[in-house]
Amino acid sequence: MSYYVQGVLIMAMINAISVVGLSVFTGFTGLMSLGHAAFIAIGAYTAAILTKLYGFPFVPSVVLAGIMAGMVSLVIGIPTLRAKLRSDYFTIATLGFGEAMRVLLENLPITQGARGLPGLTPYSTLPVVFIFFVLVTFVAKNFVFSRYGRMAIAVREDFVAAEMAGINLFNVRLRSLFFSAVCAGIGGAFQAHYITYIQPNMFTNVQSTLLTASVVAGGMGSLTGPIIAALVFAAIPEVLRVANMWRLVAYGGILVAIMVFRPQGIFGYKELTFKGIYRGYKHLAAKVTGQGGAK
């Protein structure tokens, strides 16, 4: 495998790790965040500070980065989700959180302000990233196709009816937020040790958009769809060598176009499974009618 292809693959899987989390959060639970880049940033900074300043080994640092992002998500999630804010109020709150976090990163001594943390060791090799990607996907798959996933879907479909089915909205939403933040934190840790430097301005809406676009294009209510979209989105611009901003223009356009023409995305509410591929078209057609594929 050429060095170049390997690089694209690593970056694609790093994105996919965060996308899996966001898929659970937005695709399955129906919440929208404008602040997930902040969780990526928290993961990136936590891992970078641990490896660079404290000489921690890499894999534990990645795990701690995920936990740290998860903890911070509880700080923001517990009050806002407990208050049962309307969905758009919640989104505005995440926007505020993301912005506040960025300003903090620019001003805390340990994050070294706008200069950031340069000279990180490139620990994010293909095998490590791959193992974490598989692990995260495994956990997400089991989560989604369990009673916990069913509760999340119920909340997404109709939160009033979900409550009247005995579901505690707060628990369900917080669980999804926590999981997505842990994924984002892990993704951030890998990203930092792939690019080998981090700065506060790397973690803005560009990142959030890439993730959301993958979830939306891949299909809300699907895990495989967003993963495939994340891999494709990471590969296409590399192949076409388009400038970053045109890429974002396209992502913005894609988001609108999908909402207008095909809101369920490519794989909406469906999964691409090995079984499914084996059994071919017939099996897929049966799943369209509602039976989850990977159960």
Binding site: F143, S146, R147, R150, I153, A165, I167, G221, Q291
Partner: peptide
């Protein structure tokens, strides 16, 4: 829950009185 099957709609409600496994077991 529009995108769930009729069966899953009912199962969602059954979870309240019949939690068959916990989060760690599920994952």
């Amino acid at each position: 829950f529009k995108h769930l099957s009729a069966l899953d709609n009912v199962i969602t409600a059954l979870d309240l009185n019949y939690p068959m496994y916990n989060l760690a077991e599920a994952i």
